[in-house]
């Protein structure tokens, strides 16, 4: 009987990773669900495309090598995010290549100038936030993680996550306020 992997829960997919005949398709489904979010998190945390790709690859390889048949996976995205976070922190501590931070500030060709501008400003504003607030905001805005998943990944209560997110996003708005006011004057509508 064929298994429809897209209908399986995260816990079921994780269990299938231990079964050789299901391993490939189960991993493909997990990758489809969370690959982009983990990649976006790595890109935003590390500021550097090459480092982010290395961290992203390492994250999923570590995940694959850590699969054990007897583990109950209750929060797969948080688990993946925890591996990604550890990998990124290790990489960040090793390389200290802040000089390449400007790389991602240059927008992609298919983006509009306005979108590039606001993304660059958000990127710079994120760097001004305290580390915990920044990490929570990146997980929520770019990796599309829920409060619960962020709390699991960071190992803090959900109320703390809510507080960090609220403070972090308010600070972002304060930092970007002059930009929005300027835009409002130029483009009132």
């Amino acid at each position: 009987m064929a298994v429809n992997y897209s209908h399986l829960s995260d816990a079921e997919l994780y269990r299938y990773l231990s079964v050789p005949e299901h391993r490939e398709r189960a991993f493909e489904e997990i990758y489809r669900r969370y690959g982009q979010r983990i990649y976006a998190y790595c890109r935003k945390i590390l500021f550097n495309t090459q480092d982010a790709e290395d961290a992203f690859q390492t994250t999923f390889l570590k995940f694959l090598s850590s699969v054990t048949p007897h583990r109950e996976m209750s929060n797969l995205p948080a688990y993946l995010l925890t591996i990604a976070r550890t990998t990124c922190m290790d990489m960040f501590a090793q390389r200290h290549e802040h000089a390449e931070l400007v790389e991602d500030f240059h927008g992609k060709p298919d983006q509009t100038v306005e979108a590039n501008e606001i993304n660059e400003l958000i990127e710079m504003a994120l760097q001004l936030l305290p580390a915990q607030w920044r990490e929570a905001v990146i997980m929520q805005l770019y990796a599309n993680m829920s409060y619960d998943e962020i709390a699991s990944a960071l190992g803090v209560p959900m109320t703390t996550v809510r507080n960090w997110l609220s403070r972090g996003k308010q600070r972002l708005r304060e930092i970007l306020q002059p930009y929005f006011e300027e835009r409002h004057v130029e483009h009132p509508h």
């Binding site: 990773l17 490939e24 990758y31 982009q36 990649y39 992203f56 694959l64 958000i122 805005l141 599309n144």
Partner: peptide
């Protein structure tokens, strides 16, 4: 401002896709 930031970040996040070669190598690892 909150909506602008939220929308811009979500759009930008959607554009951050892992390169196809990286995806292929990871899927092959499984």
């Amino acid at each position: 401002r909150a909506v602008m930031i939220h929308v811009a970040a979500q759009r930008h996040a959607q554009m951050l896709q892992p390169p196809p070669a990286l995806t292929a190598s990871l899927l092959a690892a499984a």
